[in-house]
Design a protein around this nucleic acid. Structure first.
Length: 251
DNA sequence: GCGACAG
DNA sequence: ATCTTGTCGC
């Protein structure tokens, strides 16, 4: 129907990349299909915003992908869903999307409350090929997506100012000339900054504005906090349930 | 070749 | 990501 769905079909119709070389090639296409120039929706223009995260159990190979939708103004949790699956791609720096997205997409499809934007736990534009998690998810869903990461990955930055809202550029010095790919943003005074980057359909300025609004009290945005909590809780209960037949079953 | 390396 | 207790502070 729409162009965006066409792009989705192009990337999901075939098999999901099985090798690193295929994944890298797929990222080049994702990057080419992404909207990396739109300012995107400002905080006041978004009603429902989603957060996604994935929790893993290394030994059982199980994973739980969580998707939550919050009221962008009140931060009230409107809906929470999880999807259980198994990891089909290892964690490789730069290829995180191929490990996390299958589960995330499945979880997002279970949502009855359609979000207008999605916050990813990781990077978007700040990526070796400018095709991080948020760019990839945005192309696949057509939704504005941006990334909020907890560590600087392979990029450089200087310490942002001490106050909430202070920031400093996240720089890719592997390019000539060096390019600003994101922002180290202090969401709380006296706490380490988070690393924000644009994604598909939303620029860095609005991504940072959303991040600040979503983090009125803690370092990380509520979207990722809620999704993270839901995911690990569901994974715990899943593991407990699997052991139950051998242990003290209820009744 | 070695180290670094979102989650 | 996950392994992990207590501890300092509001």
């Amino acid at each position: 129907m729409t162009d965006r769905e066409g792009a989705v079909g192009a990337e999901t119709a075939g098999r999901w990349p099985a090798t690193e070389a295929e994944a890298v090639a797929a990222q080049e296409r994702i990057r080419a299909a992404a909207d990396l120039t739109s300012p995107g929706p400002a905080p006041g223009e978004v009603r429902r915003i989603a957060g996604v995260d994935v929790a893993y159990d290394e030994e059982s190979d199980l994973l739980v992908a969580a998707a939550v939708v919050l009221d962008a103004d009140t931060l009230e949790v409107l809906e929470e869903v999880v999807h259980t699956g198994r990891s089909g791609f290892p964690y490789v720096p730069g290829l995180l999307a191929f490990r996390e997205l299958p589960g995330v997409l499945a979880a997002l499809e279970r949502l009855r409350t359609p979000p207008e934007a999605v916050v990813c736990d990781g990077y978007g534009y700040a990526h070796p090929r400018r095709a991080g998690l948020a760019v990839h998810l945005g192309v696949l869903t057509g939704l504005p997506c941006f990334g909020v990461a907890k560590s600087p990955f392979v990029f450089d930055h200087t310490e942002p100012g001490p106050s909430r809202g202070d920031s400093s550029p996240l720089l890719d010095r592997g390019r000539t000339p060096p390019e600003v790919v994101g922002r180290a943003l202090r969401t709380q005074a006296g706490v380490k900054p988070v690393f924000v980057s644009a994604g598909h359909g939303i620029g860095l300025d609005h991504a940072c504005a959303h991040t600040l609004r979503l983090a009125p009290r803690y370092r990380l945005p509520e979207t990722t906090r809620v999704a993270d909590g839901l995911g690990r809780r569901a994974l715990r209960e899943l593991k407990a349930g699997r052991r139950e037949p051998y242990g003290a079953a209820e009744r």
